[in-house]
């Protein structure tokens, strides 16, 4: 399977984050190794996106330590995270509607040629990248506003792969995607792992999680609620951790259905 290095490339130690009266994260621990896919799961509002944004520098942490390759670092701005090598695909995508696909893919790290933006090389690289992802976009020169939800999602994912990230964070990357595109994104996650990147994958879809993840970290109400290796853990155990009880909506429904079919 995967050869996991000893020092995690990214580790959170006792991270807390408050928004006014809401304690969104409390003492959260998380480790991601190079070549590992760590899934982050939890119910709506559990704090997954908030955790992602603290790593990406959108919301600086209030307490705790973020370690990068074993050293404590402070991430206060998105550019801090980018410089470390964290690439993030946000749940809300965060693309500029008025810029074209090329402009969005390279936003914040445009290629330069004699000091001016090198549109030609950027366009070429964009087409190559989108082609390796087998994505159909009418033209890389149309504004993002004219793409479908799934196409935007794919642009946001492609955006994370430009540059040379060491850790890729995907916040519900397949939520808007069709069957074929979902499979492609999962393939992509596996390719990232083969290339030795650390991947944090957030998803509500247990099938996706068990298909590609090595470890599953459960967040519940802003706290860690268990970490499991995917091998040897059943979906029921994970769901129990997500909902916080063995007696929960999912198991109740399952037993109800089981009774009904009997």
């Amino acid at each position: 399977m995967v050869h996991v290095s000893a020092t995690p490339v990214l580790a959170l130690r006792g991270v807390s984050k408050r928004f006014g009266a809401v304690q969104a994260l409390t003492d959260v621990e998380l480790e991601v190794h190079a070549g590992e896919v760590a899934a982050l799961v939890g119910d709506n509002g559990a704090g997954k996106s908030t955790l992602v944004k603290t790593i990406a520098g959108v919301h600086p942490i209030d307490e705790g330590v973020i370690e990068w390759e074993g050293r404590g670092v402070s991430i206060n701005r998105p550019s801090d995270a980018q410089q470390l090598g964290v690439a993030t695909v946000y749940q809300d995508l965060a693309l500029c509607d008025n810029l074209d696909v090329v402009g969005n893919l390279f936003l914040g790290r445009e290629l330069l040629r004699y000091g001016s933006i090198d549109e030609v090389t950027m366009e070429k690289r964009s087409r190559e990248l989108l082609n390796t992802l087998s994505i159909r976009i009418p033209s890389v020169r149309i504004p993002i506003a004219s793409l479908s939800g799934g196409q935007r999602q794919v642009v946001a994912i492609a955006r994370a792969l430009i540059g040379d990230p060491k850790v890729v964070i995907l916040d519900e990357p397949t939520a808007a995607l069709g069957v074929e595109q979902t499979a492609q994104v999962l393939d992509l996650v596996e390719r990232l792992r083969e290339r030795g990147l650390g991947v944090i994958l957030i998803s509500h879809n247990m099938a996706d999680v068990t298909a590609v993840a090595d470890t599953v970290h459960v967040l519940r109400l802003g706290r860690n609620n268990g970490s499991f290796p995917v091998k040897g853990t059943t979906n029921e155990q994970i769901i129990a951790a997500i909902t916080g009880a063995t007696d929960n909506a999912v198991t109740r429904r399952q037993s109800r259905n089981a009774e009904a079919t009997q």
């Binding site: 946000y90 965060a94 936003l107």
Partner: peptide, 15 residues
């Protein structure tokens, strides 16, 4: 242009 299009997207892109 980016800031004119989306402030949130721009700041997340490190601008």
């Amino acid at each position: 242009f980016a800031v004119g299009g989306s402030i949130e997207a721009s700041s997340r892109a490190g601008i």
